[in-house]
Amino acid sequence: MRFVSKLTMALVGALALFGVGFATVTPADAASGTIHFSIVKGGFFVGAEGGNGVLEFRGRRYPLSIGGISGGLVFGASQTNFSGRVTNIRRASDVAGTYGAAGAGAAVGAGVRVITLRNEKGAILRLQGQQVGLMANLDLSGLVISMRR
Rank of each mutant, 00 (worst) to 15 (best):
K6C: 04
D139A: 12
F45Q: 12
R91K: 09
L11S: 06
S141E: 02
A96L: 08
L15V: 02
G142D: 03
E49L: 06
G50I: 04
V114D: 15
L64V: 07
V46F: 04
D29C: 08
Q128H: 06
Y62D: 01
R118D: 08
G21P: 02
F22W: 10
G133K: 03
A104I: 15
A14Y: 06
A123G: 01
G50W: 05
R113I: 13
Y62L: 02
R61V: 13
F37Q: 05
V95T: 09
R90L: 08
E120G: 11
I69K: 05
I145L: 03
R85W: 05
N119S: 07
G21Y: 04
R118M: 14
G84V: 10
A136P: 08
A107V: 15
G19I: 00
T34E: 14
V74G: 01
F75K: 02
P63M: 06
V95I: 14
A31V: 10
N81K: 08
A48L: 04
G122D: 02
F44W: 11
V40G: 08
E120R: 07
H36T: 15
K41Y: 12
R58T: 09
A107E: 10
V112C: 09
G51L: 07
P27I: 01
G42P: 00
L55F: 03
L17R: 07
G129C: 04
Y62I: 05
A48D: 01
I69Y: 11
L143D: 01
A107K: 15
L125Y: 05
V144Y: 00
A96Q: 09
A106K: 12
G109D: 10
A123V: 11
G97H: 09
V144D: 05
T26Y: 04
G53N: 09
G129M: 07
G111Y: 11
K6Q: 09
I66F: 12
A16Y: 03
S5G: 03
R60C: 01
N52S: 15
E49P: 01
G109A: 06
D29N: 12
L134D: 02
A16Q: 00
R2D: 15
G111V: 14
L138H: 05
N81L: 06
V108Y: 13
R91I: 13
L17G: 08
G43H: 01
R61M: 11
G142R: 02
V86W: 09
S38H: 06
S5V: 14
R85S: 08
N52G: 15
L143G: 02
T24K: 07
G100T: 12
Q128M: 03
T116N: 14
V74P: 02
V74K: 00
G72Q: 01
F57Y: 03
T80V: 13
L64P: 09
F45M: 11
T24I: 12
G133D: 01
F45I: 15
G67F: 06
T8F: 14
G19Y: 04
T116P: 10
V114A: 15
R126D: 13
K41E: 14
F45Y: 06
I39M: 04
L143Y: 08
T80W: 02
L11R: 07
T98F: 00
I39L: 08
R149M: 01
V54D: 09
N81T: 06
T34H: 11
R2C: 13
A101Q: 15
G111D: 14
